[in-house]
């Protein structure tokens, strides 16, 4: 088991956002969490990357380590968990190259960094053409590529992806997901949260359904795609 989440509960200003959810991700998997806006998907990822305080009773382990004993920056630099946040959150004032270099900030293996940068440019060749450009001037698709690229350079055992399809035209979205599949084949485990349930379930091998802070369903992607409730609620009937 790579990631194990048990009884994860989070509140914002005393309003419960997650009511104690439990799930697991195996090494090498692509797992998705689908759900409506406000169901708690982003909150789940933020809790795993330690960007949010969790409530008592929550247990989370990554690779056998107690996740809760690591601060956010060490989750990335020591455990190898990267997080592509909602809205991408690039540093618009830095260039494409600087964004990637910053992602490698805590790494001490210059050769490995170089190799990973090359890998990013191999997957997203358009980024290479824009290397000296400020990230704020990139198109939406290019920004998503850079956000994923940054995550790949920072850590690559587990990648947490928050709505990678958001704001992308269908064709571009497909190519981003294809790139992500390639990244997964090279050994990075992926946990993705998506509102676009159809896209996510075709991409992932397994999925969970999150509803108002509770996990209500789980299963293999084919099962969830065929599930009448999922169909009615998330796949447009």
């Amino acid at each position: 088991m790579l990631l194990s989440v048990e009884n994860l509960a989070v509140s914002y200003d005393r309003i419960k956002a997650l009511h104690g959810i439990s799930f697991e991700v195996e090494e090498g998997e692509i797992v998705c969490i689908i759900g409506a806006n406000g169901a708690g998907k982003s909150t789940t990822l933020r809790a795993i990357s330690r960007m949010l305080p969790v409530e008592k009773g929550t247990r989370m382990t990554f690779g056998g380590q107690d996740l809760l004993s690591y601060p956010a920056d060490k989750v990335v630099s020591e455990l190898g968990v990267s997080h592509v946040p909602e809205g991408r959150r690039l540093f618009a004032n830095l260039t494409v190259m600087e964004n990637l270099k910053l992602a490698a900030f805590a790494r001490t293996d210059p050769r490995g960094i170089e190799r990973d940068m090359e890998r990013v440019f191999g997957i997203f060749s358009r980024l290479k053409e824009r290397i000296g450009q400020k990230a704020g001037t990139l198109s939406g698709g290019e920004q998503q590529m850079l956000a994923v690229g940054r995550a790949l350079v920072s850590a690559r055992r587990l990648m947490l992806l928050d709505e990678p399809s958001m704001g992308l035209a269908p064709l571009l979205m497909r190519s981003v997901f294809e790139a992500l599949e390639g990244i997964n084949r090279e050994g990075t485990t992926i946990l993705v949260v998506e509102q676009n349930a159809r896209m996510a379930l075709h991409f992932a091998q397994r999925g969970y359904v999150l509803e108002s802070g509770n996990l209500v369903l789980e299963g293999r992607s084919e099962e969830l795609l065929a599930n009448p409730e999922v169909k009615a609620a998330y796949l447009g009937g």
């Binding site: 060490k74 959150r89 540093f91």
Partner: peptide
């Protein structure tokens, strides 16, 4: 400079 732009997201870079 990154922190000046977006303080919150900096830890996600391992910084």
């Amino acid at each position: 400079r990154a922190m000046a732009y977006d303080y919150v997201v900096v830890p996600l870079m391992g910084v």
